[in-house]
C-alpha cells in the first residue's frame, strides 16, 4: 500500500532534529532506517504530517569507547552493531541479540536506537538493554538527559520519550572479565519476532554461578528483568538442576498476554524453558 502523503525534512544535527520536532508537534515522526515506521506508514496505521529524516546525523552513527562503557549511536544499523569490534568485545550480548533481529535486509537498514524507541514488546533488544543496565541519552528542547533502561520502557510501544525528544545514543556499561552471554529466542521461522526471548549474562567462578543478569522479551508490555531468577542463581551451582530450579522463577513479575502466536500460559512455560537454556548456554553447562 501507499502511505498517506506527508512532508519530508532532512536534518543534519541533533539540534535540528529537536527543532523540527518542536515545530512539527505530535504530527511529526522521526525516520532513520524506517524498518519499524515504513510498515506502519504503508498500512496507514500512522499518518504523520511531517517525517524528519535523521539518517545523516553524524553524531548518531557508530560506536565509541567511553572507558567504563561503550556508547552506541542511536542511528547505528543492526548490521554495523553486530559486526562492531567494541560491541563484540565489551557487550557481546548486544551483538548476539542483534544477530537474531529480523533478517539481513532489515538489519542493513534498521537501527539500534530505532528498535529501542519503537519499544515493540516482541522486539529483542529491549531485554538485552535492561539486562545490561543500559542508559539512554535523550535530547529535547531543554537539553540532554540520561534515562536508565528500566525507566525507559513504559508500556506497549511506549517509552518515556516525550513527543519533542529524540534518542541520541545508548550507553552500555562494560561488565568486565568473567562474564558469558546468550540470547535464546523462540519464534516462527518466517518471521523474526520473538514469541518469547531470554537475554542472559552469567558470571562463573569455579563450579558455581557468581552473578547473573536476565532480561525477558514479550513477557509483558515491555522488557522484564527477571530479578527472582537472578537472586536464585547467585551462588548456585553451575549445574543443570540448579539452573532449572532457578529458572522456575522466570514468570515472577511478568504479565504475559495471549495473542494469535501463543496463549499467556504457554508464554509462561516458554519463559522457564528458555531461561534455563539461555543460562545453561551462557554458563557453558
Amino acid at each position: 500500500m501507499i502511505p498517506v502523503a506527508f512532508d519530508y525534512t532532512k536534518v543534519n544535527t541533533v539540534d535540528e532534529a529537536v527543532a523540527a520536532l518542536v515545530s512539527g508537534g505530535e504530527d511529526a515522526k522521526i525516520i532513520a532506517g524506517g524498518q519499524s515506521l515504513m510498515p506502519v506508514l504503508r498500512l496507514r496505521m500512522a499518518a504523520p504530517e511531517v517525517v524528519i529524516d535523521i539518517s545523516d546525523v553524524a553524531e548518531m552513527q557508530g560506536v565509541s569507547d567511553a572507558g567504563d562503557a561503550i556508547v552506541i549511536g542511536a542511528g547505528t544499523t543492526h548490521h554495523a552493531v553486530m559486526n562492531d569490534p567494541l560491541v563484540k568485545t565489551h557487550a557481546p550480548l548486544i551483538a548476539m541479540t542483534t544477530e537474531t533481529v529480523a533478517d539481513p535486509q532489515i538489519r542493513h537498514r534498521g537501527t539500534f536506537g530505532g528498535a529501542l524507541a519503537h519499544a515493540d514488546p516482541a522486539g529483542d533488544l529491549p531485554a538485552a538493554a535492561v539486562a545490561l543496565d543500559a542508559v539512554m541519552t535523550v535530547a529535547g528542547p531543554d537539553g540532554r538527559r540520561d534515562i536508565p533502561a528500566k525507566d525507559f520502557f513504559v508500556d506497549y510501544f511506549t517509552t518515556s520519550l516525550e513527543p519533542e525528544d529524540i534518542l541520541v545514543s545508548i550507553r552500555i556499561p562494560k561488565l568486565g572479565e568473567g562474564w558469558a552471554y546468550h540470547y535464546e529466542k523462540f519464534n516462527r521461522t518466517a518471521q523474526g519476532w520473538a514469541i518469547v526471548g531470554v537475554a542472559a549474562a552469567v558470571k562463573r567462578q569455579n563450579g558455581s554461578i557468581e552473578a547473573a543478569r536476565i532480561g525477558l522479551t514479550n513477557m509483558g508490555p515491555g522488557p522484564v528483568r527477571a530479578t527472582s531468577v537472578e537472586a536464585a542463581l547467585a551462588g548456585a551451582a553451575a549445574s543443570d538442576d540448579a539452573i532449572a530450579a532457578a529458572a522456575e522463577n522466570a514468570t515472577d513479575g511478568t504479565r504475559a498476554t495471549s495473542d494469535l502466536h501463543a496463549k499467556a500460559d504457554y508464554r509462561e512455560h516458554l519463559a522457564k524453558v528458555l531461561t534455563k537454556r539461555a543460562v545453561a548456554k551462557a554458563a557453558g553447562v
Binding site: 519530508y8 525516520i31 524506517g34 524498518q35 515504513m38 510498515p39 504503508r42 517525517v51 529524516d53 539518517s55 548490521h79 539481513p104 535486509q105 532489515i106 542493513h108 537498514r109
Partner: peptide, 15 residues
C-alpha cells in the same frame, strides 16, 4: 543500496 541488500518496499525513494 550502496552494496547492501535492502527491501525496496521499506525504503522511501527520497532516502
Amino acid at each position: 543500496l550502496d552494496g547492501r541488500s535492502v527491501k525496496s518496499c521499506s525504503v522511501l525513494a527520497v532516502q
